[in-house]
């Protein structure tokens, strides 16, 4: 059996989620459609600083679409129609004059690792370079720090100059996490990051995430119910574009739910 206590256990010096402060992400009446087909309907929720916020639900329930809307990636998806309000740090994301600065505050990790066709080093140094960091020493420092925090440094420190795509799947996924961290983000979005990663690496990444919680806010989209249970402080359940349930992860797994479908999904009766 899995450990009964849900959510990441607070580590030393980690005070945990700040439910008493203003939320970092506020979503109000968010409806997204592709053409005439609605992908997400009337989502309203808050995400607080320093929490790991889990989103679970079967395929096509709008989880990925939700993440894309948060950093205004709809710009690159013609036909994706976003309606409603999203505020990050209290500021409507559509009010940002420089949307690229907004995106640079948000690190994103995809289901399949996307190593840029660059060396390991250049993958991690990419974002710092965009921000105008040129000094080799400074870049070296960022690369080592981010790779270390993604639990990859020891494995790649001797092959920083080989192509990122030559690493194993699990290593590549940690490389993309290191790359996301190199943005020095306030928010980290993970979209089913473990789909192509072996269980041992998954566990290592989960440990990394638990440590990161003290520094940033994590939105974890996952198709593994137990992963949400292990990591998330609070969890939302999306089903066919609707927010069915939201609450403390513990409550969801203790069946303190408002909707029967939540229990059904968690217990694996569908999905």
């Amino acid at each position: 059996m899995v450990d009964a206590t849900s959510g990441a256990a607070p580590l030393n010096g980690d005070p945990g989620p700040r439910y008493d402060e203003a939320p970092i992400i506020e979503v109000r009446d968010l409806t997204i459609s592709y053409g005439r087909t609605p992908a997400l309907r009337d989502i309203t929720l808050d995400i607080y600083r320093h929490e790991i916020f889990g989103i679970i639900g079967p395929a096509n329930s709008g989880k990925t679409t939700f993440l894309r809307a948060l950093n205004r990636m709809d710009e690159f998806n013609p036909g994706m129609d976003v309606d409603g309000t999203i505020r990050i740090n209290g500021k409507d994301i559509n009010d940002w004059r420089n949307v690229y600065a907004l995106r640079s505050r948000i690190g994103v990790v995809f289901p399949l690792p996307v190593g840029l066709p660059l060396t390991v080093y250049e993958n991690v140094a990419f974002s710092p370079r965009l921000r105008g960091i040129r000094k080799k020493a400074q870049l070296d420092e960022v690369v080592e720090r981010c790779l270390t925090r993604a639990a990859l440094w020891d494995e790649v420190k001797d092959r920083l100059d080989s192509l990122g795509s030559l690493l194993s799947g699990g290593q590549q996924q940690r490389l993309t996490i290191a790359r996301a961290l190199s943005q020095e983000p306030e928010l980290l979005f993970l979209d089913e990051f473990s789909i192509a990663v072996d269980p041992v690496t998954t566990m290592r990444i989960e440990d990394v995430l638990k440590e990161l919680r003290s520094e940033l806010t994590i939105v974890l989209v996952t198709n593994l119910v137990q992963q949400a249970r292990r990591l998330a402080d609070r969890t939302a359940f999306f089903l066919t574009g609707e927010l069915v349930e939201i609450g403390a992860t513990e409550d969801l797994f203790e069946r303190k739910v408002e909707d029967e479908r939540t229990t059904g999904y968690i217990e694996g009766r569908f999905g």
Binding site: Y100, L116, S127, L130
Partner: peptide, 25 residues
């Protein structure tokens, strides 16, 4: 396309994406 998406998500502008990833490749 995934390369472009990865760049955009890091906050690269379209032009930065073109210059640093699309054109070199």
């Amino acid at each position: 396309q995934a390369f472009r998406e990865a760049c955009w998500n890091m906050g690269a502008t379209r032009w930065q994406t073109i210059r640093k990833v699309v054109l070199p490749n």
